[in-house]
Design a protein around this nucleic acid. Structure first.
Lengths: 221, 221
DNA sequence: CGGGGCCTTGACGTGATTCAATAAAGGTGG
DNA sequence: CCACCTTTATTGAATCACGTCAAGGCCCCG
């Protein structure tokens, strides 16, 4: 045990504050497709993703779904709801066989309150998420499918000025939903990029010989 | 002086903590169209809007603009950037002759850190904004123009089960940008709603005889 | 009276979705 | 290891929502 200590949020926590939290936490296993929590249900825990994959989904009345975020192993999620005494704003659904650690919010908050420094970090963390969402908002509203996919791929690139081979973090349908597209559209955009010589696609692996060229290409659409 | 005391954020602050903050703050007046701060510039202050109107804008490379939020008098804004030592994620532009109070972030943060209770409130506030943005994300990505406008109007309704007359908070072009639409589309949707007998439009005033009917109508599109 | 925002309306173009069919990949059991 | 079935991905054609372009109306203010 436990990679939890190495998350950005907990890395600064002294061990003796994490221990009681862990004592009250429990691992949960989900099969692919299972719902961890549903949008609107009261939030009593947040989670650490140990193995597998979780999609955070915002659904509309029409049944259309948008993936707000694809959670990867070693990520914490849903911790930001704690301070509203709140409800989950999204649905969390497993996209593969998945194990999460369920951590009770009340103890977490109580611990935070004894340590202004930790609070400060938590604020920074929320602020980061805020920026992330504002960026998402921009992507969705003023950018084309090409631009959205290009930004997304470029974000996955470790460095932007040399060739990269990246791995899509989930099946293409999920990536499409993450980008606010249909799987069909994603497929077409990928093939346009391929035909333009900007990327190579092999299953979930995408090679980008020149990321900057990709950015330029997407800029003009 | 001063309505600042009555904002959700400051209402719990003791006067003697607000006073030094005010001493370091100064009023600023902007003409319509003037930029208060630009996206990406370093954030040293946040603001209280006394009179006028400010649009928070996220722009894309193509020049397209999305209004993230329309700020109204007595609102605080840009306070959430404080904890990243950050840069403004959006541009703030006056949409009318406007006066704001410019409050230095460093002193604000320093004050917060001495008072865990205030920090706790700040966390709640950020959490709220997070929920707001997630909701926005959903609206933008999985809802039609009709649904977006309907939700928007319904949010402006004080009560949903009795007739309401609401006032658009800005000129229609700005509302359109807020909803991620063009002015033309907004106009058309409004007129569709009017023809369906769901609303009456008179300049910026919109009467909704039956909000629930509006919600149902929008549900099926 | 005239000019300039602001809003509306129409005709048209286009990017993305939808529907449907096919192909490829992955998993399972014989 | 291969046939079989399911899931996932691609491709094409038709459709649709929304955006773009352009023209005209309204209202306010000089």
């Amino acid at each position: 045990m436990l990679r939890l200590h190495h998350t950005p949020l907990f890395s600064a926590w002294p061990n003796d504050m994490i221990a009681p939290l862990l004592a009250q936490s429990q691992p949960l296993t989900l099969e692919s497709g299972e719902i961890l929590f549903a949008e609107g249900s009261p939030a009593r825990s947040f989670y650490f993703l140990a193995v597998g994959r979780i999609n955070l989904i915002a659904a509309a009345a029409t049944g259309q779904e948008k993936i707000v975020e694809i959670i990867q192993p070693d990520d914490l999620f849903a911790e930001a709801v704690a301070f509203l005494g709140g409800r989950y704003p999204v649905t969390a659904q497993a996209d593969a066989t998945t194990t999460v650690l369920e951590i009770p919010l009340d103890l977490f908050v109580a611990t935070l309150e004894q340590r202004p420094l930790l609070m400060r970090q938590m604020l920074a963390r929320l602020s980061m998420r805020l920026h992330f969402l504002v960026k998402e908002l921009r992507h969705l509203s003023v950018e084309s499918a090409e631009q959205r996919l290009a930004s997304y791929l470029l974000e996955l690139c470790p460095v932007v000025n040399s060739p990269a081979a990246i791995e899509l973090p989930a099946k293409k349908a999920a990536v499409a939903a993450r980008l606010g597209l249909t799987p069909e559209t994603l497929s077409r955009v990928l093939s346009r990029m391929r035909k333009a010589g900007l990327i190579e696609v092999e299953q979930r692996t995408i090679s980008i010989p020149d990321p900057l060229a990709l950015r330029r290409w997407a800029g003009g659409r």
